[in-house]
Design a protein around this nucleic acid. Structure first.
Lengths: 334, 334
DNA sequence: CTGTTAGCGCGTTCAG
DNA sequence: CTGAACGCGCTAACAG
């Protein structure tokens, strides 16, 4: 592996000059530059990222902090980020968060002397102290699914999404509408499900419908658990005629439970989800769509922008919501 | 940020000693170690990965080289890798390959002085020269979906998989069986589709059936193109009664084409795919399953093993195939 | 068992 | 416009 010294020798210049042409900094005479470029080419020289990171105090990478990489919505967003960053030569580092402890662990890394050039933080809300540290070390993270005023972020109005979903059901004529969501106040600080839940309550109230507590259930995220909850709901004396699940994953669980209980969708039960993950179109699931892949793409753009211009001016991107009506919702039978 | 020097001072020892306890190398008296550990704790010291990488000549990371991160099968494998590595503190770097040029670019990085501690290479076959370079720099990459004798690899017998799929169709009584696969001899050097295709031909021959060329089509990977090809197949004077698609993604395209042409599955047309991606179960797609997520998990294990023991003894893991019969295949009507 | 001394490859003042 | 020298934080011989 050729080093910067080899290049300097070959070009008959000092390492400083080589450094200058590599980083396109300072003035270098056209002729000298060409000589250096030639040497770089001949030696197939590539600067060592590690050696570079040391004085710069930043790694040539963009870190993506993501809870549960297995969640379909996370997958879509990460894909968007990877693709958006593909136009640069910046590698993407995945920091997976499966347990609460992982979160602060990775957050610390982001604010350490080995911080990356850029970062995307998905569905996580750091503490004020952590936010302050980002500012100190001049890292401009981009948030997805969290509205952090201090930094750039891409998000949706979850509460309104909950209203949209519930209104769709109400408009169809449903009156016994259940809600299935994630555990609220969980250890990760996710808030989207709780906000969608709030939207559900608001919509019901506006429509003059009572939000009965036996129709509102929460549990750990996942289709299995949701299936179990749906089963309970369907065996109630007066089961709901419609269920709003705060994610498509959970809505799929509901569909499974209905199938097992031989409850026909949408005639006997309407189901609406949230997210519009890839699989939903195939299943004909009615859902509230927000652009998952695009959110990653935009995040990548913002990260690139912040790397170019370290002023870190926060940008705010609110994405549109849209109810995608497919075949799991319809008017109630009774 | 505290450095190793701060820790040394605070503990009243030399930096070397601190380094020793951090890396658990060499002998350090219990008492001294405790003092160092205490200092590390008090200062919340964390070694700088960059500074560490420089003398070590390796980055503290595992790189995953993956073509088309958007492919469902790639997603499942990457998830397995990330999860398998979660037990360590090693970050995972995604190196996406969308264009042929990206491949050698990333491969070079893997063999540079900034090489990672470990690497997983998915569905790609490096040249002999590149393979030799890995050995030179003592990188022990783990291959998934490529049987490279020099290194550890996890793979399946694609040809046999093709036989399995085709035999399933033949066993059902089909005689006009079509094949849809990826372009062979493409610029990425993927071989799995071609091998599955070979299995198809072999199975037909053994069964005494003629492999007619008009029933064998290839095209760029993706359900849209597959849908188009299936459409052509279905409008043939004597359309096939069954189609074997070399991937589930393509099989889904076939199902869409059938739906558009009002061809009933499985009564009028049987469809079998390959891979058993997540969505297939929901669609009721009959397919040849191989453990995608597990392949990533195993790759992670092997990477960890190779990092611990740099002897790099290649391991060979061949995964089992299984025909998962669901509802898209059945006996032909005529 | 522990400390001293060189680098690792590059960026960055500061002179010239 | 160019170069010399120092330092980034850590590991690795080499002594003691």
């Amino acid at each position: 592996m050729a080093t910067i010294i080899d290049v300097a020798k070959r070009a008959g210049v000092a390492v400083t000059t080589v450094s200058r042409v590599i980083n396109d900094k300072g003035q270098v005479k056209e002729e000298t530059r060409d000589r250096v470029l030639a040497a770089i080419d001949e030696l197939a020289y590539r600067p060592s990222p590690a050696a570079r990171s040391l004085p710069r105090k930043r790694a040539h990478a963009v870190s993506v902090l993501v809870p549960f990489v297995t969640h379909p919505s996370a997958v879509a967003r990460v894909q968007g980020i990877v693709h958006g960053l593909r136009k640069t030569d910046i590698p993407v580092t995945i920091l997976d968060v499966e347990k609460p402890a992982h979160q602060s662990e990775h957050l610390d890394t982001l604010a350490s002397s080995y911080r990356p050039e850029g970062a995307v933080i998905i569905s996580l809300v750091p503490s004020e102290r952590q936010l302050a540290r980002f500012a100190e070390v001049e890292l401009c993270p981009v948030f997805i699914d969290a509205d952090i005023p201090e930094f750039s972020r891409i998000f949706i109005d979850d509460r309104t999404g909950g209203v949209l979903a519930t209104d769709h059901l109400i408009g169809l004529g449903h009156r016994r509408i259940a809600f299935i969501g994630d555990i609220e106040n969980g250890s990760f600080g996710f808030e989207s499900s709780a906000k969608r839940h709030q939207g559900y309550r608001d919509a019901l109230r506006v429509a003059g419908l009572e939000a009965e507590s036996r129709y509102q259930r929460t549990g750990p995220h996942g289709s299995d658990i949701s299936r179990q909850i749906a089963h309970e709901l369907l065996t109630l004396p007066d089961p709901p005629t419609a269920i709003f699940a705060s994610s498509d994953t959970q809505a799929i669980g509901v569909m499974e439970a209905a199938k097992e209980a031989r409850v026909k969708i949408p005639t006997e039960l309407s189901v609406i989800g949230f997210d519009d993950i890839e699989i939903s179109a195939y299943l004909g699931l009615t859902t509230v769509r927000h652009p998952l892949y695009e959110s990653g793409l935009i995040a990548a753009e913002l990260v690139i922008e912040h790397i170019r211009d370290p002023s870190c001016a926060p940008r705010r991107v609110e994405q549109e919501l849209e109810v995608i009506v497919r075949s799991t919702t319809g008017p109630p039978r009774d």
